[in-house]
Design a protein around this nucleic acid. Sequence first.
DNA 1: AATATTAATCGTAATATTGCAATGAACTAA
DNA 2: TTAGTTCATTGCAATATTACGATTAATATT
Lengths: 110, 110
Amino acid sequence: MGLAKTEMFTDHQNEISLFAKVFGHPARVAILQQLFKIDACYCGDLVNEIGLAQPTISQHLKELKHLGLIKGNVEGTSVCYCIHKENWTAMKTVMFEFLNQDLTQKQDCC
Amino acid sequence: MGLAKTEMFTDHQNEISLFAKVFGHPARVAILQQLFKIDACYCGDLVNEIGLAQPTISQHLKELKHLGLIKGNVEGTSVCYCIHKENWTAMKTVMFEFLNQDLTQKQDCC
DNA sequence: AATATTAATCGTAATATTGCAATGAACTAA
DNA sequence: TTAGTTCATTGCAATATTACGATTAATATT
């Protein structure tokens, strides 16, 4: 079908998968790494840095913004993007809890 | 196109996105949570627990196995799955480094 | 006003993903 | 052997994602 049956899963499971999904494309990983690296973070800079077309970068930025992980500030004709610190930290809490599930108690059945 | 231009990105960026992608579906999140929770982790149990059809669960398991995050052990007609501890730990290192990038030094440009 | 710059949006083509019925493969039990 | 169990694979339909050319909107510059 191509359609995840989200109603079958908990809100928590859906939240984890939504965060993970946005990291599931190397362009968005590259955008985020660049935003962590530099202070001036204009859309055009990201286009030059990453090498995808402007509409493509703009689309990836939109997804990151939609999840609240970045925010954009209009400065004349430019738009300056940066990490949304509070939301990034909140996302980390969710992802860390998932990734850090206890392995030490597990029997290795295989 | 629907096709990520992976050759434009570093191996590290592609690695992060591949791990994230596999967590980008709630069914796979649910499967992994179940494998962390229980010791007996047969495919049929996962089908009952999660509620998707058996071929669908089998397909998700295949993707998790392909990335090395789980392993399966054939026991007669059943297959017992569990977390691949070493690979899970290695994956965590990669994901933590990405998620833990330093925010304290950042100017908030927005 | 006319032109230039920057980035968002629209439309569309190509590819990927999800889900499942049907089937097949491997083993078990009678 | 025959029937049953368990899970993988195949094939297909529906939907999602990715990428970009063309355009638009907003602002800046001359």
